[in-house]
Design a protein around this nucleic acid. Structure first.
Lengths: 152, 152
DNA sequence: AAAATATCTACTAATTCTATATACTTTATT
DNA sequence: AATAAAGTATATAGAATTAGTAGATATTTT
């Protein structure tokens, strides 16, 4: 399951994605709009910033912006920053590898292959999905659902 | 990440799979062979039993057996028993659905589709992989690695 | 009856996740 | 220069989950 941290991070990035190219957005505003505890959001934005996804500016009129086009920020990056590994077992993780403590012998382990496959399948989807994709998807769903309610 | 509970469950099922068709195996033996804390393993085996994966017999000469062929026990079943949902967001879970508390409107949520895809891809692999597959895989890896070391 | 085994419930300990607090730095504006 | 408006950084508290333990009970075999 995704942590709240990751969910909040995605929400914040989507909001910032909609704001891309405009003046920076303040933490407090994002916090209000998305109902995210402000102090918690501060931390999350810092992680994202330190990982290079966000640009920040201090002082009056400061705030946050995406540091690149929302088309170029992918879910897999966000999840790795906030939740760490994508893989279900550490011994199969690309970015956070370590041995399973319960494991006698990694070489003859019968489940590594399966979880490598799961990792790859997951990775494929998450690394193809950008913040822009999510924004587009939202917009098309909003449209569809408002059309539907007009037809009632 | 898989919980220890799930890892221990898989290990126990693999051991019991190798023992399939033979006399029941005691908790204490599985615990020793797989280095799993006995009392914790008791709990785990109970979950698996109550979910119908294991048959148990009390008293002298009792113990545990798989309740069906290891070819017919799939990772997805085990994981659902021990770790719950496969999906990364509850609103997309097939067996453990509930709304995301952070979510304003499920209908216009931009990430549900992505995580539905992830779920389906994961599910496909995990529901095709049986305990027998894992045993076979282990055996072939053991063979391969011993051949390699003979060649040194 | 005694011994060997699983069952069940409750509890404790450890870890991780969520959230808050406090002090500090930078920038813009007046 | 002073002040206010932001973000930065680190520490800590509280909540939830995960891991593991304890103890009493129920069955079965011998």
């Amino acid at each position: 399951m995704l942590s709240k941290k990751t969910k909040y991070a995605i929400k914040a990035l989507v909001v910032l994605g909609k704001n891309y190219g405009k003046a920076p957005m303040q933490i407090s505003r994002i916090s209000q709009e998305e109902q995210i505890p402000k102090k918690f959001l501060e931390q999350i934005l810092l992680y994202l910033r330190n990982a290079g996804l966000l640009y920040s500016k201090k002082g009056a009129g400061g705030g946050y912006n995406l540091s690149k086009d929302p088309k170029e920020i992918f879910l897999v990056q966000v999840m790795r920053i906030t939740d760490g590994p994508i893989a279900m077992v550490p011994c199969v993780s690309l970015n956070f590898y370590h041995k399973c403590i319960e494991c006698k012998d990694e070489v003859t382990c019968g489940i590594r292959d399966v979880y490598t496959d799961v990792r790859d399948a997951t990775l494929k989807i998450l690394s193809e999905t950008s913040i822009q994709n999510i924004i587009d998807r939202e917009n098309s769903l909003i449209q569809t659902s408002s059309e539907t309610s007009n037809n009632l």
